[in-house]
Computed example of a mutant assay.
Amino acid sequence: MSLRVGMRELREKLADYLESSVPIEVTRHGQTIGFYIPVPKRANQSERDAMLDAGRRMQEELIRLGITEDELVADIKDWRRSRDAV
């Protein structure tokens, strides 16, 4: 489960959202522009374990959005190609 938050609200409540453990879908003019996937670190948890937790949360978001890893990788490659072409 994630929150859908506009840029203005994100700026106004940034400190609160950064403390949250819920992923945030960031929008501008109703269009998704990014995601914030928090990596809450527990006592005695290594950075590696925190990153693995973040990966699991990212996988949950991909499933929720109906996006496969292959689609995400292809989209990132397309974006890089278009960026490098400029």
Rank of each mutant, 00 (worst) to 15 (best):
F35M: 04
F35P: 02
Q31P: 09
K41A: 13
Q45S: 03
H29A: 10
Q45L: 08
R42Y: 14
G34C: 00
V22P: 12
Y36K: 03
I24T: 03
D53G: 04
N44A: 13
I24C: 02
Q45N: 05
R28K: 14
I33T: 02
P38Q: 04
R42H: 13
V22D: 12
M51W: 07
G34L: 03
P38L: 06
Q31N: 09
T27V: 08
H29C: 06
P40M: 05
E47H: 09
Y36D: 06
P23C: 08
N44P: 04
P23A: 10
L52W: 12
K41W: 04
S46M: 03
T27D: 04
E25A: 10
E47Q: 12
F35Q: 00
A43M: 09
M51R: 12
D53P: 01
V39E: 12
Q45W: 13
I24H: 01
Q31W: 10
R48A: 15
V22Y: 04
G34N: 05
V39M: 14
V22G: 08
S46A: 05
Y36I: 15
T27K: 09
N44L: 08
Y36N: 05
Y36L: 15
Y36Q: 08
L52Q: 11
V39F: 12
P38R: 02
T32V: 07
G30I: 13
Q31V: 13
A50P: 09
G34D: 03
I24D: 00
P40S: 08
R28F: 10
G30A: 09
L52S: 09
P38D: 05
R42V: 06
V26G: 01
D49F: 14
R28D: 01
P40L: 02
I24K: 00
V26M: 14
T32N: 06
I33P: 03
E25S: 10
P23V: 02
I33M: 04
T27C: 01
G34E: 02
M51N: 07
T27L: 07
E47A: 13
P40T: 07
G30F: 09
P23T: 06
R48L: 15
K41Q: 15
I37D: 03
I37P: 05
L52V: 15
Y36P: 01
K41F: 06
T27S: 00
D49G: 07
A43L: 04
P38G: 08
I37E: 00
E25Y: 01
P23W: 09
I24F: 00
E25T: 00
